[in-house]
Structures are given as C-alpha cells and as structure tokens.
Amino acid sequence: TGIVNVSSSLNVRSSASTSSKVIGSLSGNTKVTIVGEEGAFYKIEYKGSHGYVAKEYI
C-alpha cells in the first residue's frame, strides 16, 4: 500500500512508460494498493483492473 504524494493529480498509465496511454488520474493523498514493480513504475490496482504510476510520486 502506498499514498499518492502530489499536490494536484497523478496520471495512471496503461503500461510502465511515460509514453503509454493515460487511463485515469489519482488525487494527492489517495491510498493505492501496489501489486508489482516495473522499472520506475509501480503496478497498482485501479478500477477493477491494473494501472501504472511513477514510483517517485508514491
């Protein structure tokens, strides 16, 4: 489990790349469930599926 550490919002992406499609966003202080790691990204549970967020903001 981690907490989103941004002042505005954090993009949730379809894969572990900054060039991948943005599938949603999370507000600061949102609790997320981390299910894996891939490079500079965490794989998280997101809306019944999975998404990826940059580690530096969790």
Rank of each mutant, 00 (worst) to 15 (best):
T1Q: 12
T1C: 14
T1D: 08
G2P: 05
G2R: 06
G2M: 08
G2C: 09
I3Q: 07
V4G: 05
V4H: 05
N5K: 11
V6I: 14
V6P: 08
S7V: 13
S7M: 10
S8N: 11
S9N: 11
L10K: 03
L10W: 04
N11I: 15
V12H: 01
V12Y: 01
V12C: 02
V12R: 01
R13I: 06
R13A: 04
S14D: 13
A16T: 07
S17K: 07
S17E: 08
T18A: 14
T18G: 12
S19P: 06
S20A: 15
S20T: 04
S20Y: 07
S20K: 02
K21T: 13
K21M: 13
K21G: 08
K21L: 12
K21W: 08
I23G: 01
I23T: 03
I23H: 02
G24V: 03
G24I: 03
S25V: 15
S25Q: 15
S25A: 12
S25I: 15
L26F: 04
L26P: 00
S27N: 13
G28P: 15
N29M: 14
N29G: 15
N29A: 10
N29V: 06
N29H: 13
N29L: 11
T30D: 11
T30E: 13
T30R: 05
T30Y: 07
T30S: 12
K31G: 06
K31N: 09
K31M: 14
K31D: 05
V32M: 04
T33M: 10
I34N: 00
I34Y: 02
I34R: 01
V35Y: 07
V35K: 05
G36S: 08
G36K: 07
G36H: 05
G36E: 06
E37H: 07
E37K: 06
E38D: 10
E38I: 09
E38H: 08
G39I: 03
A40T: 09
F41V: 02
F41C: 04
F41Y: 11
F41M: 04
Y42E: 00
I44G: 00
E45Y: 10
E45M: 12
Y46D: 01
Y46T: 02
Y46E: 01
K47D: 10
K47C: 12
G48I: 04
H50Q: 07
H50R: 05
H50D: 05
H50Y: 15
G51K: 01
G51W: 03
G51C: 02
Y52V: 01
V53G: 01
V53T: 02
A54Y: 13
A54V: 10
A54G: 09
A54W: 10
K55I: 06
K55E: 01
K55C: 04
E56V: 10
Y57V: 05
I58C: 03
